[in-house]
Amino acid sequence: MSFEPKLLGFLCNWCSYAGADLAGVSRIQYPPNMRVIRVMCSGRVDPKFIIKALELGIDGVYVMGCHIGDCHYLEGNYEAVKKFDMTKKFLKIIGLDDRIRLDWVSASEGQRFGELVSKFVEDIRALGPSPLSGEKPNQDLLNKLKAIQMSVSNNRIRALVGRQRVITEQENVYGEKYPEDKFNNLFDQAIKDEYERHRILISLKMDSKSVKDLAKELNIDPSIVLEHILSLKGRNQVDFGEIIKNTPMFITL
């Protein structure tokens, strides 16, 4: 039997959920693989929901909202884009980014809704089952995804996403605008840093380790591990443990 993808969709109440209803009223047929969670606005879709679904082995997650410019809540979908892009950047690190998708469906686009869902089912079927599905999910990948789950709830990442539009689209009090590409560089670095830091935290939760151990285990340059450890210590998340043969071991707090 061919693989049937297990998909989850987050639909905004006003446009895409209405579009999905219209597909029904118009009797447009599409495959039944996607289960729907209704939210009031696509901007309500917290990245942690998407990561949670992937952790559980769901093969793909679709977020749908009103077309840009047509948001029932004025500009909620602009924020949805920022949150989604952030989630996608994290997932790109571990190669799961093709399993999430964002699209706009208006209340009058029943046909389009059916087509988009059909295409998503087809694409995920071609991609195969999620490595996190089934009886034996890939443990290493699951740990990495857990690090992402912690990162998307982290206040630094959330503050950057929350302020992104203010920073890049509006002028500050000196009449300066922060260039988009400069922001993106900073944001990409923050994503990489937070991902690695949370991997370190997860690893240390199991056992106390030295910088060298961590560098080897996580395949990160030791000098960068040390920098992360210092940041985490500054945040009161790790501390020195015992010292073995002149090498400090680190523990989580």
């Binding site: 309500r44 917290d46 929901f49 949670k52 206040n155």
Partner: peptide, 26 residues
């Protein structure tokens, strides 16, 4: 209006979106 933007953005996950809470959606 209950759109939920603030809750999904809140850097400390402190804001609760009634009737569409994190707990309910999860």
């Amino acid at each position: 209006k209950g759109c939920g933007l603030c809750g999904a953005t809140c850097t400390r996950n402190a804001i609760v979106i009634r009737h569409f809470t994190d707990e309910q959606i999860i």
